[in-house]
Design a protein around this nucleic acid. Structure first.
Lengths: 207, 207
DNA sequence: TACTACACGTGACGC
DNA sequence: TGCGTCACGTGTAGT
């Protein structure tokens, strides 16, 4: 007999004994109780209640009552999330296409941080620290960056991206007159840790 | 003995009998089967599998694995949806603030549909059919509309709003020289049915 | 009748 | 140890 079923059988026997304990007056070794109560009965009840409450809250967020079932609730939730992500990406892209009415912390951050106006040639000053970050899809961004050629600068860039949870899916880089211009396609997984403004600032302080 | 438990007890007895049927070779009245199978055992198994699959999909959407529990999955999903809605509203508002680089079907629709250039005074022509729809929060919009005073026009407006799933939370309306200018705060529940462009067009055709 | 979706009580496992 | 989470098999109401 399989182990699992053997246990179930024993449990059933216990249940029967407990249930029948006060029915047949035969003396038994176990002090008869009218009902057998599992130890975690109420805990399980609480858990179920909590879970159902969450499920209800999820459904109440969006009362698109296609079906009042658990499955459809979950399905609607995931489709809704996808839809929202898509919409957000669209809006970001749309916002990024606006020429430059910036000031906002979000949307196609494009800034030229020339915080070191030193004795570099004018051409370099204009290029120094140029960072462009614009959304191209759901959690996908284009990152254009120009920085001075330095040992390990590129890997530092990659490390910075990895640190904020951005995965590089494509790279194109070209070096000229002491500078490098590179554009990357990045895909961000953990949007919680990812902030366009923060990444931009970090990159600016890096170059 | 309570009815419920009595049934449970009987079921348990059946289970024991079935389980023990091939173990004790005693002859029994019921043609012994190795296992007692409830009719919907496999159905329930399938249901559970499906549900867990959906739950897993929900979690995999956003692999911010704070906890790998069902409850936290649902909570994360809820907070994520709220966050996305908030973000979307912010982006829409930001987009709506852009002076007018429109062309897009979305974002602060403001159009003056003067499709009936008849013999009304110039002042009226400029006002006729003015519809402004701009987001002011999560699923909340400001709707400014100017239309010609006509019997039942206002209730028709309200009906149109209700038809697309928009609830009016505030109204301010003033009539002057045969026209009414009203501004409403509307809150949309079912975003599926709600389309800013569509609503605008509908209202334009109404005025 | 059969099928679907649910809630329930229970044992097992992990902290 | 107890507490929380889970999967399981079952009973049951709605269609």
């Amino acid at each position: 007999m399989p182990r699992r079923q053997r246990e179930a059988t024993e449990a059933a026997i216990d249940l029967v004994e407990a249930a029948l304990g006060d029915w047949c007056n035969e003396v038994r070794e176990v002090p008869v109780e009218a009902k057998y109560k599992s130890k975690n009965l109420e805990a399980e009840r609480r858990r179920r209640t909590k879970l159902n409450g969450k499920l209800l809250a999820l459904r109440s967020l969006r009362w698109r009552c296609s079906q009042m079932s658990k499955e459809s609730t979950l399905m609607d939730a995931i489709s809704y999330i996808k839809e929202l992500e898509q919409k957000k990406a669209e809006l970001q892209m749309e916002l990024a296409q606006i020429p430059d009415e910036d000031g906002g912390k979000q949307g196609s951050l494009s800034s030229t941080g020339t915080m070191t106006a030193t004795t570099v040639p004018l051409e370099a000053v204009q290029l120094q620290g140029k960072v462009e970050l614009s959304p191209i899809g759901v959690n996908k961004y284009h990152l254009g960056i120009i920085f001075k050629n330095k040992e390990g600068a590129f890997v530092k860039l990659l490390e910075s991206l990895s640190k904020v949870g951005a995965e590089v899916t494509a790279v194109s880089s070209v070096a000229f007159s002491g500078f490098s211009e590179t554009v990357l396609c990045i895909e961000v997984k953990d949007e919680e840790r990812f902030s366009m403004a923060q990444l931009k600032q970090q990159l600016l302080s890096m170059v």
